[in-house]
Design a protein around this nucleic acid. Structure first.
Lengths: 351, 351
DNA sequence: CTGTTAGCGCTTTCAT
DNA sequence: ATGAAAGCGCTAACAG
């Protein structure tokens, strides 16, 4: 009870208190069936009484395996990735693991640092949403260390790693077709930076969607910006300032951009969904109430997080699986703002 | 180079390759100044060549101290807490620590589980944004384990723990005064649940603000709801449906609620900031562009995260500090929607 | 300045 | 069914 002499209580102490030996305690801790119930009870009482806390570090040292999953995210500030991390955490926790989470702030150096740090802590698997500009070379060490790794959301084309990505191409194409069916001909693509694969996939779907409908693309209608709400405001402002035939609809890089586009429209006294059609990619839960008329190509981030975690565990448990590339399907969710509750119409999109 | 025989490379291997001893390697690893540069170089080369990765688990076992900070958040889905975690991470990383992040989904049992798990992993400090309904008893074990802990954002009144909270009372009062100065007399308080301390503090500020201006409070104008965007929509709908003298302004529990209130207003063809004044608490970065006219009582979550991490490190480094309760100041940010760029006016609020 | 030695708390044969 | 002993990879004394 002396505040200073408080030494860490170990299995030995527990064993002593319970009148058994070290290894018996260890076996109880692991729920081994070879220990008789009464002995188990004695040990458990001693544990409670002494306030013993299991030292997982020592255990992993001995067992050469930890129960830690690392996850490094490019930007936690983006709700999509925060939701994804939540989805991952659900699976990780239910598997009895804990989650190391770090975010790289879109900085490749930082990303390498945190990965190194995680490896030093002996993670038994890693999920990574790569920072912009991540090269296969950056992940070289990682992949040939044999650590189970899966890449989520953004691909790193050259790296031989498992990945779970959304079907960006098919989603963008479906969105464009939807807008064309609504009668639009001048359709813009707003937001995002061209140095990530996701952007390229989405713009490709956009371009192919247009050309399949016999509409020739106008490259001035593709406007880059930060993939954030503020970026969306910028992009729509630039679009509205263009001379020439005005666009009447846009596909936004993600939902943050789409929200920004709506903000920008409103500040010009235009009503999203009425004066100008907006389709957003990704689907943060808030989107449902935020802009009733906002159509989205939706990727459920929590579900995606769960899937990616499952893929990782599959890889961990199967020893050494081949790299596996999965595309999660997306849905086109059309919302109408006529009255309440909202009429929504969803369609699963196959590639 | 054989994929199966790949054994973990240890300090011994490195020592062998570099032609020195175990402890020399260890000293190099710790950047000790007693090792001559050329020996250091040899060792570092060997490390690179063998692909050695430091085993921090073994080190912590020996040193009885890890470099892990735990942070458990009630809801990562709420951008405010995601931003807070980012702020924490900045400090944690720059101190050479890594961050264990888990979220409790507002579930006290889950919260206890993850805390236990973190302790088993030997965290050297813990930051906690308590789940709703957390009792001092839930944290009893924790506090008398002597682990440095700081509570953030939400207080747990009975527990003897350091805390970093925003000045909710003063903020709410200032917001109400602002609305009164604008000429409002029927002011509502929307959103949030009354079982958390933050809610009580904010409503108290609201009530005192009213009564100091000689306005008697009308309890039908305090409407509870989930502290989310959807909750805000609900709350404003309920408010507008009330019979009797209509409210002309509201203070929202947080910014998510405020956004929802704006959504709800718009769906009734009312313009926030024109037909009805809205003040939101908390300040997610997006708020700036989202609703230009939205006045906020602003708490910068990233800054708060940094502060809380600093407080924790202070406690870790000073051995055993007394529990310390800090209130971060808040700012009243008034935004006007007249033209662009926005005219904003800020005022720091003292308690 | 560098090598030797003895554990940190746990798991795991191998005896009893 | 339980105990004894060895060792995971590292650091910290202490010798040399």
């Amino acid at each position: 009870m002396d505040g200073l002499t408080k030494k860490r209580v170990t299995v030995v102490d527990v064993a002593h208190a319970a009148g058994v030996s070290k290894s018996t305690v260890s076996l109880v801790l692991q729920g081994s069936p070879v220990i008789p119930p009464d002995t188990q009870a004695k040990v458990k009482d001693a544990i409670r009484e002494l306030g013993y806390v299991y030292n997982r570090g020592a255990a992993s040292l001995r067992q050469a395996s930890s129960s830690i999953i690392g996850i490094v995210v490019n930007d936690l500030t983006n709700s999509f990735f925060a939701e994804l991390a939540v989805g991952v955490d659900m699976i990780v926790q239910s598997a009895g693991y804990v989650q190391f989470l770090a975010h790289s702030s879109e900085d490749v150096d930082r990303q390498n640092q945190v990965i190194a740090s995680m490896r030093e802590h002996g993670i038994s698997g890693l999920i990574i949403c790569p920072a912009r500009g991540t090269e296969p070379a950056d992940l070289k060490h990682l992949v040939d260390s044999g650590l189970p790794v899966v890449v989520a959301v953004r691909n790193v084309p050259g790296a031989k790693l498992s990945s779970l990505l959304s079907d960006n191409y098919a989603g963008a194409k479906a969105a464009v077709r939807h807008l064309i069916d609504l009668g639009h001909r001048r359709i813009a693509f707003l937001g995002g930076f061209s140095d990530i694969e996701v952007f390229r996939e989405r713009t490709q779907g956009y371009l192919d969607g247009l050309s399949e409908a016999g509409i020739s693309a106008d490259e001035t209608l593709v406007i880059h910006s930060s993939p954030s709400r503020a970026g969306g405001v910028d992009a729509i402002r630039q679009l509205l300032a263009l001379r020439g035939a005005p666009a009447t609809a846009c596909l936004s890089f993600n939902d943050a951009v789409a929200f920004g586009v709506c903000d920008g429209l409103r500040s010009q006294r235009l009503e999203p969904g009425v004066d100008f059609s907006v389709v957003g990619f990704d689907d943060v839960i808030e989107a449902r109430t935020a802009v009733p008329a906002l159509t989205t190509v939706s990727v459920n981030p929590q579900r995606m997080g769960q899937q990616v975690a499952q893929l990782l565990f599959k890889q961990i448990n199967s020893g050494r699986a081949e790299a596996e590339a999965i595309r999660t399907s997306v849905r086109l969710v059309v919302r109408q703002s006529t009255g309440r509750p909202l009429a929504t119409q969803e369609a699963e999109i196959a590639s």
